[in-house]
Design a protein around this nucleic acid. Sequence first.
DNA 1: TTGTATGCGTTATCAC
DNA 2: GTGATAACGCATACAA
Lengths: 353, 353
Amino acid sequence: MENALTRQRKSTLADIAAKTGYGTNTVSLALRGSTRISQAARDTIIKAAEALDYVPNNTAKALVLKRSNTVGMLVEYLTNPQPTAVATALQREMSDRGYSVLFATSSTPEQEAAAIEMFRRHMVDGLLIYPVDHTNLSHLHRLRERNFPVVMLVGARDTGLDAVGVDEFQASYDATTHLIALGHKRIGALGPTKDKPLKIEGFRHAHRVHGLPLDERQIYEPVGFSMAAGYDGMAILAERDLGLTALFAASDMFALGAMRWAKVKGVSVPEQLSIVGYDNIEYGEFSNTTLTSVRNDGGTLAKAAVERLIALMETDGPLPPPTLTLLPGELVVRESSSRPGRRSWASGQTDKL
Amino acid sequence: MENALTRQRKSTLADIAAKTGYGTNTVSLALRGSTRISQAARDTIIKAAEALDYVPNNTAKALVLKRSNTVGMLVEYLTNPQPTAVATALQREMSDRGYSVLFATSSTPEQEAAAIEMFRRHMVDGLLIYPVDHTNLSHLHRLRERNFPVVMLVGARDTGLDAVGVDEFQASYDATTHLIALGHKRIGALGPTKDKPLKIEGFRHAHRVHGLPLDERQIYEPVGFSMAAGYDGMAILAERDLGLTALFAASDMFALGAMRWAKVKGVSVPEQLSIVGYDNIEYGEFSNTTLTSVRNDGGTLAKAAVERLIALMETDGPLPPPTLTLLPGELVVRESSSRPGRRSWASGQTDKL
DNA sequence: TTGTATGCGTTATCAC
DNA sequence: GTGATAACGCATACAA
């Protein structure tokens, strides 16, 4: 059967060998710049390779070397600019170091498993992953047990895996503490509670430490990952009529959705509702009311993750014990958070409440 | 030399053959569900494969089949949510069809060439690309001449290449015409003029068609691709003191940056400055003043591009003539565009002007 | 229904 | 310095 690539035969080492009169072995060495080959031979061979538009076949190389110089990168969504920026930086870093990147997205554990198997078929040398469910990492543990290099892009402690990420718990604690310090007593929260509970746990922890009672109904997990989800989530929190004067959003996407909700409902930010986000995406900085948020340095994060992955991939034999690189998240205070105002909006000011 | 993947030997067809007593050939056929193999044999072989945690080696398969079931995806940035969403959709579509995606980013023609060579090394079966420079596609023509499937994600006519994209020229014409119809006489433009001139050409065309004079200084090409670049670009246009009452931004990122500029400078949108963006990103919809923009259906675009690429990849022999799929961009009118107000801001109202 | 031999393009080993 | 030869893991043609 004819197939796609038979159309135009790619030239091979053998072609160059035939053209120059050398053996394929010599050609291979020459093209890789071996000094064992005479200068003259190298020149003619390189010239012939260019003339034939020769491109080395990584697939054949991988087969014999048992390494593909390729890594897998698995991300959940690319709707959030923060992980997206990190993904871009990861790709650049890997590329600079001579690695190619196979890319996949997954929003369920099943898709994640399928993507990982795809990566394995492609003989990737390692894996960079934003796992879907931070509370169940057994499949990643299995990979590590087989000495397969995996670096998780999550700032979580005690996972038994290599991980690089912002200290989500601490940063969320700080963000919430900022609101508490401003005098807020009833703070809503929008964020994941099941799969990725660390941020909301930081939120809870701040309440405990500062002796502030917390009603479970102050917390809501938006459905999906968008500003629309943040908008809807804020609407649901508002309906609960808990007298909220502030909101902690585990993502700027949610925060900006909530800010839009406030605008639509005539609730003023920050006078009637303070909002703190997370990720410090550019929109937050350019919003009409600029958004207080947690900044995390995606570039540093990507570099650290790539360095760790490469270290693991270059290790012969058993992998070294897992390492955790926890980067600090820095709270950037902007216009959207202030001391609670006199007027509340929960007491029926808005249309629907 | 030991290397990364020698750590844990991956099991192969030969391992399964050894374990079950069949030949590798039988095992290969059985695993691919050939009915030429007896049901009993297939069952034992599949069971053994699972026990050995067998994963087919795509690299070896690609070598013999001369196709990798992998495509390359090349994007410029992932800072703009619109192409990012398309990239995600492309990956999903390819994955659904059994293809893997090698991913790279490039912001210069040199990086683009390097990425394409990387893809060729990996024996990709095809290429999905947002080219950096829409005015010089000779390297892509060369690929096509060799019958290598390439689909460009650009809505440009007469490129001699397969392309799928929004009709940028028409959509930009429409957006500009919208502003002209509202009564604006002096409209600024922020967008690329050299690499990707189609949008600005649409802007120019609208001026020609509607008999509106156009000063070259009304057009500025922002440096980089961010809201900050839009902000700075708007500042530069303002300094030129051209009496602008409206702005056409070739990207919502620029538009939202310009909107922020207006807020900072005390210029009211749309009363003193109407703004029309392009891409219809979510943040425009959730902005304090909602943004008029050009909506393009990324999902449809991705699906069309993938279908075309697959059609090309499944073609035996010479490629069919290139095809252009031009999707319409729909102008979504929101709050940021209106008829010009009485007060202008250019006459010294703002701080610096 | 199953086994054997061959080749994909490359690198590595060992001759010469 | 350079050239054979084997091997990587798989699929195919051809035998049995």
